[in-house]
Amino acid sequence: MATAVRETAPERSASRPRHRGWWRWFTDNIVLLIGIAVLVYTFVPIGYVIALSFSKPSGRAASAEFETFTWDNWTTVCEPDGLCESLQLSFAVSLVATVVATLLGTLMAFALVRHSFRGRAASNLLIFLPMATPEVVMGSSLLAMFVSLGFNGALGFITIVIAHILFCLSFVVVTVKARLAGMDSRLEQAAMDLYANEWQTFRLVTLPLAMPGIVAGALLAFSLSFDDFIITNFTSGQSQTFPLYVYGSKLKGFPAQLFVIGTLMFVVSLLLVVIVELWRRRRPT
């Protein structure tokens, strides 16, 4: 499309030579401008979250409007009851769920891409179905099962983790599968030809090649798990993860410290991305 635009633009601007420069620039970049506008729009609520983290609450609860500037919310992050405990629980749940889901999902992806066996279509279907199931359905069916198995009093960390592994699993399989499918299997054959055994080939060739897919799957799993509200709401019993804490404070009013946590989540993950990117660039490839 880029070249095509360049061909038509001069014809059009020939009649209006004065506009030639900017008109051409505009037609060349219109898509980019729309894209940037969409990006700006996605950042509007983040601006609000950051602003509200510095807003002095008028009453006990943070209001929707910015009142007076204050650092207080930042120095009293853990003051609201249970806020930091909920963050700890969220981290613990997401870490366990990510590790297990990534491990199981990667094994499944290897089996599906690298091995032929009966029941492949059925396996693919069973992996796909959880992604096609609305969260509210998955959460409710898990709750019904836990209750019928007598888990009613024991809902908490374990049941949340079981549910999180479940909904992360399919996403990990799909992500790793995409990477494996695009990999050149001749590299592994070459390693074998050069007298590497199965394990060496796997460790030195296959695994490093598959790594970007596995890391992407793990990151996806972590962010899905950390941010999940609906399924967690069904399987948590009395425990509160961070999203549940936010939801739970709806009735008593949102403490302004929530927005500090929101800002921190945004800043810290952005920094992590930047650091990883810099590290990747410095490393000789």
Binding site: T42, F43, P45, I46, Y48, V49, L52, S223, D227, F229, F242, P243, V246, Y247, F254, L258, F259, I261, G262, T263, M265, F266, S269, L270, V273
Partner: peptide
């Protein structure tokens, strides 16, 4: 990046 912040907090700011 905007989606690093919690889903509920984003909805609250809307």
């Amino acid at each position: 990046a905007p989606f690093f912040t919690s889903f509920l907090l984003r909805t609250l700011s809307w």
